[in-house]
Amino acid sequence: MSSSLSEKIFRTILGAFGVFIVLLMFSVAIFLTVGAWPVIRHGLSDFVQTQTWNPVNGQFGALAVLFGTLVSSSIAIAIAAPLGVGAAIFLKELAPARVASVFSFLIEMLAAVPSVIFGLWGFFVLAPAIRDHVAPIFYPLGEYVPIFRGPSYGVGILTAGVVLALMILPTMAAIVREIFSAVPQHQREAALGLGSTRWEAVRVAVLAPSKPGILSAAVLATARALGETMAVTMVIGNRNAVSLSLFDPGQSMASLIANEYAEASDSRHIAALMAVGLLLLVISLVVNAVARIIAKRSAAKWK
C-alpha cells in the first residue's frame, strides 16, 4: 500500500470518529425533540407556566419541577461557592504543602463518589439530622418568614440543596484552584513587598483579578447541580408542587423523570417527560455555554 493511500485511510477513519461525536450530540437533541413533540408543538410557554402535573388526567405542567431544580441548585451554589473558594485559597495560598496535598486528595476523592452514594447518605443521615436538629431552630422564624415555614420531613428542597452542594464542591474548588495557579507569583510578591499581610496579598493580588474566573467556576458548578439526578431523587421528597418553604418536599426536573419514566405507559405521559428532559438539556447546555464564555473572556490575561 502506498503511504499516501494509507495516510488517507487513516485520516478518514479518524475523521469518522469526529463525525460520530458530532452526530451523537445532535442526535441526543433531535431524539429528545422528536419524543417531546406531541407536548411542545403547541409552544413551550403553557408547558413551563402550568404547575399541575397529573398523568391520570393528562395534565402536564413543568413549573413545579423547574422551580424545584432552580431553587435546589441555587441553595447548592450558595453553599458550595464560599466553601469552594475558601478551601481553594487555603490550599493554594496559605496551607503548608503537605497539608494542602492531603486536602486536595480528599476533595478529589469526593468528586469520584457516585451520585447514588450521596443519595443514600443524604437520605439516611443528613435528612434525619435536618429534620431533628436544623429545622427546629428555624421554627420560631417560620411564623414570619415563609421560606422557613412548616415542619420538616427531613427530605425536601433544603436537603437536596445541601447534598448537591457537597457534590459540586469538588468541581468548584478544583477550578478555582486552577485559576489561582494561573496568577503569576510576582503579583503576590509585589503585594507582600509593599508590606501587606498574607491575607491582604491574597485579597488584592489573587482574589481580585480572579473574580471573572471564580464566576465562571460557579456557573459551571451550577450546571452540574441542575442535571444531577440520583442524589436529588432520593432526598428531595418527590412532590410536584411549588412551595416557598425550604423544608417542604419538592421535585426537580431530573428527579421527576427518574421517578416516573419506568412506570409511564401512555404516550402523552412519555412525551411530557421527554419535554422535561429537553428543557433540562437546553438549560444545562445554555448554562455550560455561559460559563465557557465568561471563562474565555477572562482567560489569557497574564500573557
Binding site: S115, G277, L281
Partner: peptide, 18 residues
C-alpha cells in the same frame, strides 16, 4: 460537541438511550 456531550445530564442520556 464532546464538551457539550460531557455536559448532558446523565438522566437525559438515559432518555436518549431509551
Amino acid at each position: 460537541c464532546a464538551e457539550m456531550l460531557a455536559g448532558v445530564p446523565s438522566i437525559v442520556v438515559g432518555l436518549f438511550a431509551y
